[in-house]
Simulated scan of single mutants.
Amino acid sequence: MEVLLGIQGKDFVLVASDALAITSIVAMKRNHNKTRKLNDNVLLMFSGEGGDSVQFCEFIQRNVQLNGIRRGYPLSTKAAANFTRVELAESLRSRHPYQVNLLIAGCDPDTGVPELYWMDYLASLKKLPFAVQGYGQYFCNSTMDRYYRPDMNLEEAKALMKKCINELKVRFIINFSDFVFQVVDKDGIKEIKLE
């Protein structure tokens, strides 16, 4: 019942995640952080089984940071996405496959080129201009497909994100009261508010 949203603009990626931690029909927590900062310009968003998603994403976060320390420079968004895909694919062939769906958003600090990657629990990886994970796919993919433009500025992306959130509030049976919004650009990762 989780929702992750991402929109790539001309020099940023705007992402949103619901703040609910749900088990079966019970809302366990209403301020759950579903993001992990991999480095200053790469953000990992996750949904899935509670233990699997947190354990896997913390493993990825620590290993990407360790890789950056060993090499002397941070991994790019593409490198972090491919590292994550390899680790998830290897876990599928083990005794404990992780049930986790991901969005990886980043922006090159030198060139300002944004990237957004979609990955499912089967380790399928795809670079996309906009992406949705969870039940929000049924409502938001068509809205994003209709209104998305590659040259969107931040205000236009915020307006599109609002349309998606409103569509969820009108059509989905679960009331997602709180979302966490973040922007990833060449200056780093910032949490923002949508007015």
Rank of each mutant, 00 (worst) to 15 (best):
I173T: 10
T35C: 13
K10G: 11
L75A: 15
G51N: 12
N31I: 04
N141H: 09
M28C: 04
M28P: 00
T143C: 11
L125K: 00
P114N: 05
E115P: 03
G72I: 11
D18T: 06
K126G: 03
K158C: 13
H96A: 06
L116G: 04
K190P: 03
M45C: 06
G188I: 02
E2V: 09
H32W: 11
Y117P: 11
V64D: 08
F139Y: 15
K158A: 13
K126Y: 03
A159P: 06
V184R: 00
K78A: 15
K37Y: 02
P109W: 03
S53H: 02
A131R: 00
I174N: 09
C107K: 02
E115A: 11
P109S: 07
K34V: 10
N31Y: 09
M45S: 06
R93E: 12
C140I: 12
E87F: 07
M28S: 09
V26N: 08
V180A: 07
L20G: 01
M161G: 05
Y121D: 04
F12P: 15
N67R: 13
S24P: 00
V183N: 05
V13G: 09
E49Q: 02
C107N: 06
K29I: 00
G106L: 04
V64C: 12
A79E: 15
T23W: 11
R62Y: 10
P97M: 03
W118S: 12
V26A: 06
V183Y: 03
V86E: 14
L14M: 04
V54Y: 02
K169H: 15
E115C: 07
E155D: 15
E195T: 09
Y148V: 03
K29R: 12
G188T: 03
T84I: 11
A80V: 09
R62W: 04
V170N: 05
Y148P: 01
S142D: 12
N166G: 04
V86Q: 14
G9I: 05
E115V: 02
P97K: 04
F12M: 14
G72A: 08
T23E: 14
V26E: 10
L92I: 10
P97F: 03
L92W: 10
E87W: 05
S177K: 13
V13C: 05
R70D: 13
A21W: 01
D185S: 10
Y117H: 09
F130Y: 08
L75T: 15
A80C: 07
A131M: 04
M119L: 12
N41Y: 09
Y147M: 01
A157P: 05
E167W: 03
H96S: 09
N41F: 07
G136Q: 01
I22H: 00
D178E: 13
G48I: 02
H32E: 15
F176L: 06
D185E: 12
L103Y: 08
D187R: 11
Q55R: 07
K190V: 12
G48H: 01
G136F: 04
A80G: 12
S124V: 06
I192G: 10
M28V: 13
F172P: 00
G51W: 02
K10L: 09
A159L: 12
P114L: 04
V100L: 08
M28L: 14
G136A: 01
L66P: 06
A79Q: 15
H32F: 15
P109C: 06
R71Q: 15
V54R: 05
V3T: 14
T77N: 15
K127Q: 14
L88G: 14
Q55L: 01
